[in-house]
Design a binder for these strands. Structure first.
Lengths: 189, 189
DNA sequence: ACTGACTACTCACTTTTTTGAGTACCGACG
DNA sequence: CGTCGGTACTCAAAAAAGTGAGTAGTCAGT
């Protein structure tokens, strides 16, 4: 069980509908998990059945009704025991790395293109995360916020996301440059 | 299909048995994919059925016989079209990040412990990857090897792995320090 | 002689993740 | 008046990943 705990952790910040959760998973939460809306709805249904979250119907006039969920005491307990249990080691699982591994044995052209696209996507995400961090810490400077802020969990995971995206971008650009340089050498030689 | 291409890419370096592949997945390949031996055996069977790899039986005296696999032309073509297709965006998917997200709402003790364990594990992996990189590039210095080495794919993915582990270690140590500091402040105040 | 580790794999199963296709109603734009 | 984008969700199914248990022989150490 995995998405389960990501949903619970995301729901700690307040009440969310499945739809809102899906939005959140597109930005902040996406630093540590990713899921399509359908998965979130399914997971919320299961969590409710297991009593870890509770939902209430909100009737809306001009829009479809929605269900807002919050974590129950049982849900909080579940998170506690999850946090106490050992974590699986983390690793990158990325199509693009597989392609780079094979790059010098197959065509490098498309791979270079994708590395550059990725670098640009990372740039965009870096800006997004930077804005999110500024918003989360408000007026305070980072050091102060980290020591005295009340809700730092999302801030800490965003920091990880930011570092990851920066590394990823730099690596993509470096590798793209190397592969281009090698193309040139091979063309000349 | 995913593990499929990781296996094909790993097999580009020569002939491997399922068992050897499982070893490789524990170190180098683990930078971009991870799988248990059972999964690899199953994947090799499927790849052979689809004609993307071919195996030959090697009879051994003092050990069980083994089957060595290599990528076929069809397999190489499959990798080409995989490389040409769009990649899914990469992201971290890590239990520990979920725990940190929730850390200030649940007990921080176990999370701090796990952050420190992770940092140590990352240290070990950093050394391992460093050794692997030195071995791969041999006598040459890095810049030279990257431009003129013949097989740089695995080197490039190891570089990514190394950067990832360094970032991960630093983040773990920093977050552990922050959470400890906050514990102290709460105990005092 | 027993134990534990290493090579080399297989089978059966469950869980998790991903994908695709719908439903339905509102409001804005042209 | 039609269609596009946003809110809010559901159902069904396939694919991928992960888990547990087992087989069977070799070799080194106690």
């Amino acid at each position: 069980m995995a998405l389960r705990h990501a949903v619970l952790a995301a729901l700690l910040d307040g009440e969310y509908s499945g739809y809102q959760l899906a939005k959140a998973f597109d930005i902040g939460v996406a630093n540590f998990w990713y899921a399509l809306p359908q998965q979130l709805y399914a997971e919320l249904t299961k969590l409710e059945k297991d009593g870890l979250v509770a939902g209430r119907q909100v009737v809306q006039e001009t829009r479809p009704n929605k269900r807002l969920f919050h974590v129950t005491d049982a849900g909080r307990a579940e998170l506690e025991s999850f946090a106490a249990a050992a974590s699986k080691p983390s690793f990158i699982r990325d199509d693009l790395l597989v392609k780079v591994q094979a790059a010098d044995r197959i065509g490098t052209g498309p791979v270079i293109g994708q590395l550059e696209e990725r670098a640009c996507a990372a740039d965009a995400k870096i800006e997004l995360l930077g804005a999110l961090l500024r918003q989360l810490r408000g007026e305070a400077d980072e050091e102060d916020f980290l020591l005295r802020g009340e809700r730092i969990g999302p801030y800490l995971t965003c920091l990880r996301g930011l570092a990851f995206e920066r590394e990823h971008r730099d690596w993509c650009r470096r590798i793209a440059a190397v592969l281009r340089e090698r193309q040139k050498i091979n063309a000349d030689g």
